[in-house]
Simulated scan of single mutants.
Amino acid sequence: MAPRRCPCGTGLTYDGCCGRLHDGTATAGTAEQLMRSRYSAFAVGDPAYLLATWHSSTRPGRLELDPDVRWTGLEVLGTTGGSLLAAEGTVAFRASRLDDGVPGVQAEDSRFVREGGRWVYLDGVPLR
């Protein structure tokens, strides 16, 4: 059986891409890499990773993922900052989903900052 492709859309295998971040063997080097790994966490159903990569000031107490939502694609629309040496950055994206079989889209300009030396999700503004 062929290795499964990473949901984040890089074309790499899951194990060679976001899987390494999800299992803790690697951390995101850029804001975009963290955003892609968070999308993949939604796609594979990993709420623990999502909470662990959420800024302490905006992180919810708990997170339950809707089992009726299936994430079907990610498009990165643009980035600002967020490089290997940056302290903050934004990533605009469009994520496609099926919600109980009904197509939908989540589009957001997400803000990322470093906390404890690691990239974390701070918050986001919906895109129209």
Rank of each mutant, 00 (worst) to 15 (best):
M1H: 14
M1V: 08
M1G: 10
P3R: 04
R4M: 08
C6I: 00
C6P: 01
L12W: 02
Y14I: 13
G16I: 00
C17W: 00
C18E: 03
C18G: 06
C18L: 12
R20T: 03
H22C: 06
D23L: 11
D23R: 12
G24H: 14
G24I: 10
T25Y: 14
T27L: 12
G29V: 01
G29S: 07
T30C: 09
A31T: 05
Q33G: 13
Q33D: 05
L34R: 09
M35K: 04
R36S: 11
R36I: 02
Y39V: 07
S40A: 15
F42Q: 01
F42D: 02
A43R: 01
A43F: 02
A43H: 01
G45T: 10
G45R: 04
G45F: 04
D46Q: 11
Y49A: 01
L51C: 00
L51V: 06
W54T: 00
S57H: 13
G61N: 10
G61W: 05
R62T: 11
D66A: 10
D66G: 02
V69R: 00
V69D: 00
R70H: 13
W71P: 02
W71M: 12
T72Y: 01
V76P: 06
T80K: 04
T80E: 15
G81K: 11
G82P: 10
L84F: 05
L84E: 12
L84W: 02
L85E: 10
E88A: 14
V91Q: 05
A92E: 15
F93C: 05
R94F: 07
A95Y: 02
R97W: 13
L98E: 08
L98C: 11
D99M: 08
D100C: 05
P103Q: 09
P103M: 13
P103S: 13
P103L: 14
Q106N: 13
A107S: 15
A107F: 06
E108D: 15
S110M: 11
F112A: 08
F112K: 07
V113T: 12
V113P: 05
G117H: 08
R118S: 11
V120F: 06
Y121L: 06
Y121P: 02
G124V: 09
G124A: 04
L127C: 13
R128A: 15
R128P: 15
